[in-house]
Amino acid sequence: MKKRGRGIASVHYGTGYGNGFPDVSTARAEVSKDGSIIIYIGATEVGQGAKTIFCQMAAEILGVETYDIHFVCEDTSQTPDAGTAAASRQTYNSGNAVKKAAESLRQMLVERAQKHLQLNSIHDLALEDHWIYLKDYPKKRVHFKDLAGEGTLLVEETFTAQTVKMDEETGEGAPYWPYTFCCYGVEVEVDTETGEIQVIRGVCAQDVGKAINPELIEGQIDGGFAMGLGYGLMEDLGLSNGEIRHSRFANYLIPTALDVPELEKFIIEDLSSTGPFGAKGIGEPVMIPAAPAILNAIYDAIGIRFYEIPVTPERVLIAIKEAQKEEKHDT
């Protein structure tokens, strides 16, 4: 018999290292001799879209297209430290560092343009497509390349997240900033004869602060849900006396495209007052509530609560038999 159930789970997640630990990112921005823009930062790209997001931020501030930004990262001979690609911190922390560096570079450009164009002030100067011009008189303009020829155009900026160590006695403090919020709703189908569980529908509502790149956000949600599904239903290292028995993909199962349902996604924009353009990181939050929502849906379907994961077909069948025995014993 196949039984269906629904479950929800939510999470609030503090991004960054937290608890007063120094959470620092540094970035450099430069206009090279040919007028191109280079961003240097040690932030590692692990598929979360950091390079794309940082390029978008810098391009927005400097009035160019994203493909005009040359991005240098993961090279310790050229890049300043930006901390780890962990704790869902890169969009917020390193994004703020990139934003600050781009803003400082913009200020340096307009100040140099003022002198080059012999203007009274920097007021009403605009940046567009590597040019700086006077809005009221666009013919009064200068190219980034000409300004770079007058001397180095390179700035470095650092952003440090604000966190407060929690009081060990009272538990009070402000250990994280910002917090992000995520909620999943899922529907599952449990086959009581085979123990197989199929997730047939999923809904996600994710607070992102500001959606810098909605497509990347949706990709993060898809990936996070797939990881949570595998965590809850399939992935088992098979530890026995300290030895990993499931050491290859033949016996360590992960979800495929056939296991993951089409997700309905709701991107919630609740701007962070200190985030770059209001953005928050969502790398880990999109994974955390997936397994709890699935387990709640299993409970709704068959009335059995599981406290150990993954909830494999074998464990489902054993739990059903034990519940049947207890039911007979009670009657």
Rank of each mutant, 00 (worst) to 15 (best):
Q220S: 08
T152A: 13
D207F: 05
D259V: 11
V164F: 12
F181D: 05
E215A: 11
V188F: 05
T152C: 07
G209K: 00
P289D: 06
S240W: 13
G224V: 03
H246Y: 06
P292A: 06
G195E: 08
A174G: 08
M287W: 04
V286D: 07
D236Q: 06
V188S: 00
I294Y: 04
A161H: 04
P285T: 07
R201Q: 13
T180S: 14
D259Y: 12
G238C: 10
G232R: 09
M166S: 11
G173R: 08
A226M: 10
L263N: 05
A257L: 14
L154P: 00
T194S: 15
L263P: 06
G242N: 10
I197R: 02
D236L: 08
I288C: 00
D207E: 01
G232K: 07
D270A: 14
I212N: 03
K210M: 10
P178K: 04
D259K: 12
M227T: 08
T160N: 12
A290C: 09
N213E: 11
I294A: 04
E264T: 15
S247H: 15
V190E: 00
S240V: 15
T194E: 11
A250T: 15
L258T: 15
I197A: 08
A257Y: 13
I268C: 13
G209S: 03
E196T: 12
K280E: 04
P261V: 09
G209A: 01
E235K: 03
G149M: 00
M234V: 10
M166K: 08
L233M: 10
M166I: 13
N213H: 15
G171H: 01
P261A: 08
D167V: 03
G223S: 09
E218A: 04
E157W: 00
E215H: 07
E193V: 11
C204T: 07
T152M: 11
A257C: 12
G228W: 05
V203M: 11
C183M: 12
L233C: 11
G228H: 05
A205I: 10
A279T: 09
K210P: 03
E156Q: 15
C204S: 13
L253E: 12
I200R: 09
E168N: 13
E172D: 13
A293N: 01
W177E: 14
D222E: 15
K165P: 03
I267P: 03
P292R: 08
A291M: 02
L153T: 03
G230D: 07
N251Q: 09
F277T: 05
T180K: 00
Y252V: 01
L258R: 14
L229P: 09
A293P: 01
T192L: 09
G219M: 07
A226C: 11
E284P: 07
K210F: 13
D236I: 06
P175D: 03
V188T: 02
I197H: 02
P276L: 03
A291C: 12
I217E: 02
D222G: 02
Y252G: 01
E264W: 06
D191R: 07
E262K: 14
G185L: 04
E243R: 14
E187L: 01
D191H: 06
E218W: 00
I268K: 07
I282Q: 00
C183V: 14
E157I: 01
L239E: 15
G185N: 04
V208C: 02
I254M: 15
D207G: 01
K280T: 00
G223T: 08
T163Y: 10
V203N: 10
G230R: 01
C182R: 00
I267Q: 06
Q162A: 14
M227H: 11
F277C: 04
